[in-house]
Design a protein around this nucleic acid. Structure first.
Lengths: 225, 225
DNA sequence: TGACAAATCGTTGTGCACATCAGGCGGGGA
DNA sequence: TCCCCGCCTGATGTGCACAACGATTTGTCA
């Protein structure tokens, strides 16, 4: 946390804390069941409990933590049966990104995408569940720019971070075929690039939609064992 | 506000305050631009600023108010150009209600619906923009039970209250044909009942979707004058 | 030795005093 | 008369002390 508050407003600092905590939860630095201390977090981020409680309240609304009076603030469990509804909604909403306010990519975007594809190729050689999840988050944030519909982006972001922990939990328990996952992901990105170069944003959305749906089915198959 | 806190937990009381303020904003008791005082609201609801600030923070995330340091908490403007994206997303998501976890209605539900239809018929005789909006809210909450997908319900509820003020603002400015609106709404409810009695929840969703879309088009036509 | 009850500890929730900030009002000078 | 600077007011944001609550531990009695 290099305090580089150069020109940053206070509101931005709070948003940064929120994003940081969300990252820690979704990367399982704070695993399900972990207890977050308001005082400790306030000390770490150089503030007091009052602003920290606002951040935690937002995390609670997103369903990532749960605060109980007298007990503590606990990281919620990533249960596949409870998150199935969210996952299926995410599938459908991803399909809408090519329909509602699609944004044609510029050359900068295509360059970024190529960088992400290169990182995905590197995953096959030396990838860990954690580094793969970090890459997946970057890809998500990048592809989110393909729609200008702000409410849709907000909902998709919410659903993404609600459901993303499922994969990493299973991956750490060695219940997924990592090499298969890496290969499928690289293939998806290449397909997206092809669709993008042909200017077919509807196709891009459908490719994402299909892969999210298939990814969920693989997770369900693994949990049925 | 009859303090009937019989068996209600503290959390429920806060939720009730949130719903009450949301209602006041969407019924234009607090019109766009109105300033909400944390201290005054805390006094009215018999609490202090701290819990009230949490409620206002949630309203701010929903986009209904905006808090600015040193200025105040202001009810946001209901601008049709800014809410167009939310409206179009709401149209698509309403169509999904018949697809994601549809719930077959029971006899109690059908009885409730008939009561709403009767109220809609009464609107044509003696309806005001405000009472019509109250009826519309009750209809929305009732029809929301037709899907069991909790994330979808939350998003739909959010989008509904974000966009609902548009109609009431125009209606109060006498920029909508009230009798036409009442008639269309009654017709919609009757169509929904017919689809419901035939057990076709997909049709119910499409009927709602179509009417929300057409309602928005009527609003746009009026604002283009 | 077991079971029950009371106390203790740590946590989140609340209330209040103060800091911080933006806008408006008024006075003074050109 | 106009403009500008500084104060003043009222708002939200923050920090702290205390209340409320739940889990655990400890002590006592049978």
């Amino acid at each position: 946390m290099g305090d580089a508050d150069s020109g940053l407003t206070v509101k931005d600092r709070h948003a940064a804390v929120y994003i940081e905590l969300r990252q820690r939860i979704c990367l399982l630095d704070y695993p399900p069941g972990a207890q977050l201390s308001e005082i400790a977090l306030a000390g770490e981020f150089g503030t007091s409990r009052t602003p920290m409680r606002r951040v935690l309240a937002r995390l609670e609304e997103e369903g990532l933590v749960q605060s109980v009076h007298g007990v503590g603030t606990i990281v919620t469990d990533a249960d596949i049966t409870e998150l199935e509804q969210a996952y299926r909604l995410r599938v459908e909403l991803t399909g809408l990104t090519g329909q509602l306010d699609p944004v044609a990519p510029d050359t900068v975007f295509l360059t970024q995408l190529q960088g992400l594809i290169d990182r995905a190729a590197q995953m096959i050689v030396s990838g860990t569940p954690r580094s793969f999840t970090e890459l997946d988050m970057d890809v998500f944030q990048t592809l989110l720019h393909l729609t200008a519909n702000e409410p849709l982006r907000q909902v998709l972001e919410r659903l993404y971070y609600q459901t993303k922990r499922l994969w990493l939990v299973k991956a750490i328990k060695a219940e997924v075929d990592l090499q298969e996952e890496y290969g499928i992901f690289l293939h998806e990105l290449q397909a997206i690039r092809i669709a993008l170069e042909s200017g077919d944003l509807m196709a891009v959305a459908q490719i994402q939609r299909a892969h999210i749906s298939m990814s969920f089915n693989r997770l369900r198959k693994q949990s049925a064992i």
